[in-house]
Design a protein around this nucleic acid. Structure first.
Lengths: 214, 214
DNA sequence: GTTGACATCGCACAAATGGTCTGTTAACCT
DNA sequence: AGGTTAACAGACCATTTGTGCGATGTCAAC
């Protein structure tokens, strides 16, 4: 099915790539023609068909510049990027506000771009910058970026960002429901868990990732 | 210079973005026309001119689909992606091999894609998957991905991946040179530093990031 | 040498597509 | 009222551009 590329096909392929880097749109058949020193448009068309059969690109018929490269380099990395708004900081004692719809990154927030290999296509993500070392028992250091999926409840074992009415702070811990009490278990095994009444705990989000950039 | 966008201009702009996500090429004037429920191509042309004046996009005259978005959204995030090879695992007791030129991601390795906002344009990056909890004192959990910049020496305070001849293991610690001894200080302040002769320590890489995906 | 698949070539057609011209409407200013 | 301007509408034209088709060249198999 997938045989080797002729020198001309290779040239065409890399020309398309170059062209799309320079401009922002694909070349026409005639662009390729002159760029690859081919004497006829139909030759280009012929080879494009071949390349399409071999799975190197996709074409839309009757559409000018209807060429789309496919395969590793482009589609995977360039496409699946999620822009995540950094909604604020998380630190002991500070209130944490999580707006209703953090889906669409407003211009007003800082953002991080992550590839979907890390977010696994989850929706409703937002990020918090960790201030201070108060989350160190969750294996999160000062300056880390915590990626959260918006959530208002949690299942046992989830790592969550939760607001504690009692101590007036937001913290990152593993969540376990025990009757009408909630046990919040630090990630770090050398630290002790804390138990609080379920009514005094409100979950703000489920942690799906941590990013530390030094 | 840069005034506000009319609702129609906003719609056109986001339509272009959507369209380019779906297909791989920019829309035609008529695509925009029907997509944004405009009754005339001239209106689209008119607004595209405006948008161009305001610097939201670039157009090439007489060229079909000659539209290129500029500014934040596209060029910055979508372009600067680094594919980092995951060269193996790091775990107590296991040898760690760091090949000479990990720059070009071979097909043979798994890879992660990170945006340059996290890598800060550093070169010669590779990643290691952490196995086990032996790095927990460096605030690194089981399954985390450590991003490293290839290095064979370190400056005081750098977080490094180092091979210890004595205990036959690779570990992640902060590096401090004290005479002919090296002090390796865990990130976690509750843990004690260790000191070893400098000759028994060989630095393999400088940690530039940690990624935890749950 | 003949045959036939494969790649190429030149050309022309028609659809796709960008640009422009002429009005129209509504808001705004004097 | 009169004039100016931004935004829009509809029709029209010119070019760009994909595609079809027949002819030609190439090369290996028979």
């Amino acid at each position: 099915m997938k045989s080797k590329l002729s020198p001309r096909q290779q040239r065409i392929l890399s020309f398309i790539q170059e062209f799309m880097d320079d401009h922002q749109y694909p070349p026409t058949v005639r662009d390729i023609q002159s760029g690859c020193e081919v004497s006829s448009t139909s030759v280009v068309d012929y080879n494009l068909q071949k390349l399409q059969q071999m799975g190197y690109l996709k074409r839309e018929r009757e559409v000018s510049r209807g060429i789309a490269l496919i395969g590793e380099g482009l589609k995977d990395s360039r496409r699946d990027i999620v822009r995540i708004p950094i909604m604020g900081s998380i630190a002991a004692g500070e209130p944490l506000q999580v707006p209703d719809a953090p889906t669409h990154a407003d211009q007003s927030y800082d953002t991080v771009d992550l590839t979907s290999s890390l977010t696994k296509d989850r929706q409703d993500l937002f990020a918090l910058r960790v201030k201070g070392t108060s989350m160190i028992d969750a294996l999160v250091a000062d300056g880390d970026l915590v990626i959260l999926e918006r959530a208002f409840d949690a299942r046992d074992g989830d790592m969550v960002a939760a607001w504690l009415d009692g101590s007036e702070e937001t913290t990152l811990k593993r969540f376990y429901l025990e009757g009408d009490m909630v046990r919040l278990q630090p990630e770090n095994e050398t630290m002790e868990p804390i138990r609080v009444p379920a009514k005094d705990v409100s979950v703000r989000g489920r942690v799906v990732g941590v990013v530390r950039s030094l």
